[in-house]
Design a protein around this nucleic acid. Structure first.
Length: 526
RNA sequence: CGCGGGGUGGAGCAGUUCGGCAGCUCGUCGGGCUCAUAACCCGAAGGUCCCAGGUUCAAAUCCUGGCCCCGCAACCA
């Protein structure tokens, strides 16, 4: 059995989870479910990143210990995912003992191989920003943020010989078209590599400045730089260096947002190379959700709470919206208007109504039993062909991280089925008493709907499960998959005549909106 | 000239690799159907494809120059 390992980033615990975190994790959950349906042995990792300056300061401000502080925020992430219908296999924290041990083992290995050296590092240090500035970055010798005169500090630190692996990395990216996707981020990384600005990576912080981190195994006066620590979670979670899972599941693939492209596209592969480990299979990079054209931020007060939104509009509808609305890789804007529009147009009108009208006719004309089809006509064959084609497209696109386009391709079938209902007019066939033809049409519709429901399971597990149940098939559930998507896309079958289906369906209710003079959209009260 | 992405009917986007009648969803307007969740189906209106120049039988697409927006270069998915 093929194994499929996917990670989200480990989220930095300086704030509570928002829409962005939810998006990444929901996409990951959908991808994992998709691979389950392809019959693969999946492993889904998420977690929290808990070391570094910022955490230390945030904890101090609240007068608490860093550990106490990170415990609380980490729990808010950990507890959120099940409420959003997400089933991860492992939740890692960088403060976990086994992670800390793995980081030290990794450091030691790279150190022993001669790729970590002790060197002098000088720069203009700003205590406000807690970072060094280069001569070029200063504005008239002042910190660009704080406008204060900076001290030149010279400090000894440990460096990872990253530069040594950059030519290899460039070559690898050039040879593997889909290593970093979508393409625009691949282009960006290649530009980074060609700019010649990348140097060796400073991977230590002296304890005199920072204690909240993992101690270097070869020098206890220093702690490890957060990124070097954090990235290793992707293998420490598998039990690296000695756990059996690591050998069977690594290399996996990663899902990240564009802001952390560089650490994942440059630091991490070179780190793996230096440690003699295989590099990951794919880095999937997505954009930002904007709210009224700007980035979400606490100070603007436009942070979207995923749990509240999910509960208000329905978890599955919310998941569908996130996957469908954002072109993977690009930024997208979030608004309740857009969400309601997707729910009504795509889910209620197109899909839900199709489901409802077909089941209702099946009840009326065949007492809710799947009828035996007779001779197929040209338009029936066209529908079957379109449906299978759409399934195959879906599999290809979803597997290539084009979730929006994948779902769009499914809707081609949904729309075609609505047209097919109209053009075949089962009610007219019924009136005319053409039972053979009526049976064929209904069988086509029910079969196509079942296929569609299968593809929807990764995006909307609960709704798709109910659709399948209403079609007399077992729900997919969270158990090992009972469906093989690849096989299902090869033949227009799966619904045996005689199967009992539901009499009616209301899985995707319409949201009634009332437009006020101001243009605001309000949820109407029933 | 730091790097990257983008500017296409009212809104959101595809199309640009490799030039060939400007396409999709939403919204608006008109019609149809009566199986269905005021849904569904058909049709229509609506575009100087950011600007200027160039190449070409032909440019959203290629070339040159310019304008505007966004992101990265700093630990917010």
């Amino acid at each position: 059995m093929n194994s499929f390992f996917l990670t989200t980033p480990i989220y930095y615990v300086n704030a509570k989870p928002h829409l962005g975190h939810a998006y990444t994790t929901i996409v990951a959950d959908a991808v994992i479910r998709f691979h389950k349906m392809l019959g693969e042995d999946t492993f889904f990792l998420t977690g929290t990143d808990e070391h570094g300056d910022k955490i230390m300061r945030a904890a101090e401000q609240q007068g608490r210990s860093p550990q106490e502080f990170v415990d609380e925020i980490s729990a808010s992430f950990h507890d959120l995912w099940p409420l959003l219908g997400i089933r991860h296999d492992r939740f890692i924290r960088t403060t976990d003992l086994e992670h800390r041990r793995a980081v030290q083992a990794f450091l030691q290995r790279v150190y022993d191989a001669g790729d970590i050296y002790f060197g002098e590092f000088g720069g203009h240090y700003c205590y406000g920003c807690e970072r060094f500035y280069t001569e070029k970055e200063l504005e008239n010798g002042l910190c660009p943020q704080h406008k204060t005169r900076l001290e030149f500090i010279s400090e000894k630190n440990y460096f990872f010989k990253m530069s040594r692996y950059l030519p290899w990395l460039k070559d690898h990216i050039e040879k593997h078209e889909n290593f970093i996707r979508p393409h625009r981020y691949r282009t960006e990384v290649l530009a980074m590599l060609e700019s010649g600005e990348l140097e060796d990576l400073c991977i230590s912080r002296p304890k005199t400045r920072l204690q909240w981190g993992i101690e270097l195994p070869f020098d206890n006066a220093y702690v490890c730089y957060v990124w070097f620590d954090a990235l290793i979670n992707y293998i420490s979670a598998l039990g690296w260096p000695n756990g059996p899972d690591c050998a069977s599941r690594w290399p996996g693939e990663h899902l990240v947002a564009k802001d952390i492209l560089k650490p994942h596209a440059v630091f991490w592969p070179t780190m793996l190379k230096a440690a003699g480990l295989p590099v990951y299979r794919h880095l999937n990079v997505h954009g930002y959700w904007l709210v009224r054209d700007t980035k979400m931020s606490k100070s603007l007060g436009n942070v979207i709470d995923p749990l509240e939104t999910g509960r208000r509009f329905g978890l599955d509808a919310f998941r569908y919206f996130l996957l469908r609305e954002m072109r993977f890789g690009e930024d997208a804007s979030f608004s309740e208007d857009a969400l309601i529009s997707r729910i009504n147009a795509d889910l209620a009108n197109d899909l839900g109504n199709l489901f409802s009208r077909v089941l209702s006719m099946a009840a009326k004309y065949f007492a809710s039993r799947v009828p035996e089809p007779s001779v197929l006509m040209r338009e029936d064959e066209a529908v079957a062909e379109l449906c299978l084609h759409s399934l195959q497209n879906f599999i290809q696109l979803f597997g290539n991280a084009q979730f929006d386009t994948a779902l769009e391709s499914l809707w081609e079938t949904v729309r075609a089925l609505n047209k097919y209902v109209d053009s075949q007019a089962p009610w007219a066939l019924h009136k005319r008493g053409d039972t053979a033809r009526l049976a064929t049409v209904m069988h086509m519709l029910l079969t196509a709907m079942r296929k569609t429901a299968l593809c929807l399971w990764p995006a909307m597990p609960d709704a798709a499960g109910r659709m399948l149940e209403q079609l007399g098939s077992p729900a997919a559930g969270n158990a090992p998959p009972v469906y093989d998507l690849q096989r299902e896309s090869g033949a227009f079958d799966g619904l045996a005549p005689g199967t009992i289906v539901a009499e009616t369906s209301n899985i995707f209710p319409r949201i009634d909106v009332k437009r006020e003079p101001s243009g605001n959209v309000k949820k109407a009260k029933n």
